Simulated scan of single mutants.
Amino acid sequence: MKLSQFKFDLPEKFIAQEPLATRHESRLLVVHRKERRIEHKMFKDVLDIFDEDDLFVVNNTRVFTARMYGQKEKTGAKIEVFLLRELNHDLRLWDVLVDPARKIRVGNKLYFGDDDLVAEVVDNTTSRGRTIRFLFDGTDEEFSNVVKKLGETPIPKYITRGVKEEDEHWYQSLFAKNVGAVAAPAAQLHITRELQMRMDIKGIKFAEVTLHLGLGAFREVEVEDLTKHKMDSEYYRIEQEACDLVNETISSKKRVVAVGGSVMRALESSVSSMGTLNVGEGWTDKFLFPPKGFHIADAFITNLHQPESPLFMMACAYTEHKFMTEVYQEAMKEDYRFLCYGDAMLIL
């Protein structure tokens, strides 16, 4: 398929700038693939939709303070540095994006805070991409604390109000434990402690996988021929416990629910030829767009996404392109809230 087939107009008024006070009170657009029909519910209604021994697979990645602001040596120019991933732990080498990029060249030094942290640019990777080395002699814990102090929650730029203190909590999943993401697994932000407890009581199970979200699912697709688009690689890990839960659910003919695109990518990166889940760890650049097939998940929970984005394409692949385009038009007609702080969609 072509990039232009995923274009639609998304007025800014639909982009949620803050989450609801009670996250499980978000709206839930339920999409029935086979019957090609939709229902309008609330996220907490998953309690009525799913049964005992159904399995929700969630991502336990944790977002860190990836957006930092430094000053260029000599000129003092303000530079945004967005940490993407650590390339070499011992050398403190990082893959980053810088803005404005035209001012940053190999050999430049950047100063953060009151010279709490200094970095040197060692390579150009893309038009905005750089490899930098932090010049820091302290322990790993001390380095992490400095980054946390100097950085801010990396909420997306489509949230135009600026970062609030509350974003540190709002932009973190209930299941967050393994640090490494620069974007939140938005679909599971709707799962509150209260809702999880009620799901536990009903006998709905949870399995955890790890996929550290980079900018892969959010970076703009620039080629019309989607087969030529290259996703950024993201680290994932699926352990034996999660495999056992998923495969037992499949064998007992209960439902496996992928909560978010990052979970779907992790599952599809470690599927066996028998349609079961394998233990796996590594880097995935899996790009799920029509007419790609899916092998593990019986249901998919996702938010409402931007036009021409890999996440919108994944929703189209899991259903059918024309029908999903109609679903999105219905969502706007019904004033659903889009993107990471918005409402959710359940595809059955």
Rank of each mutant, 00 (worst) to 15 (best):
N124K: 15
R27L: 01
L91Y: 11
I155G: 07
T276L: 11
N60C: 07
S273Q: 10
V57T: 09
N145C: 02
G261F: 01
E166G: 09
R85W: 05
V58K: 11
F56E: 08
Y236S: 08
D53N: 09
L245V: 06
V263D: 03
T131E: 15
Y171P: 15
H32I: 02
K148N: 10
V209K: 08
R67W: 04
V223A: 12
L339E: 03
S233M: 09
M1R: 05
E234F: 05
K74V: 09
K78N: 06
D200H: 02
T160I: 07
A258H: 07
Q306E: 11
A344F: 06
K157R: 05
F43T: 00
G162M: 06
M231H: 08
S269I: 02
E152A: 01
T325K: 12
M332S: 11
V257W: 01
L87M: 15
V122A: 10
D232N: 13
D335Y: 15
P154I: 06
I132P: 06
L346V: 09
L97P: 00
E334S: 12
T276W: 01
Y171N: 05
E241V: 06
T302C: 13
L28W: 00
Q17G: 12
S144D: 08
S309Q: 02
V271E: 09
F112G: 03
L211S: 10
V63D: 11
H24M: 00
T319F: 02
S252K: 11
Y171Q: 00
T227I: 01
F64H: 09
K2W: 09
F134W: 02
Q17I: 11
E308W: 07
S272Y: 08
A101T: 04
S233N: 14
Y158N: 14
V122K: 15
A217Q: 08
L47P: 00
K103N: 04
F136Y: 15
H321Q: 14
F175C: 04
G138Y: 13
D285I: 00
F134K: 03
Q71G: 08
N247S: 02
R337A: 09
D244H: 11
F43I: 00
G107W: 08
L55A: 05
R219K: 15
N88R: 11
I201G: 00
F50S: 04
L135Y: 01
L55M: 03
D114T: 13
E166Q: 13
V257N: 02
H32N: 14
Y318M: 15
E142A: 13
I49Q: 05
R128A: 10
D48W: 05
N88K: 14
H295Y: 12
K286I: 15
F56Y: 10
R128W: 10
L211I: 10
G180F: 09
T276R: 11
H295F: 07
M324T: 14
R265Q: 02
V209Y: 04
R92S: 03
A186F: 01
K228N: 14
T284R: 13
F112T: 05
N60R: 12
V271M: 12
T61E: 14
H40S: 10
K253S: 12
E18C: 06
S251Y: 03
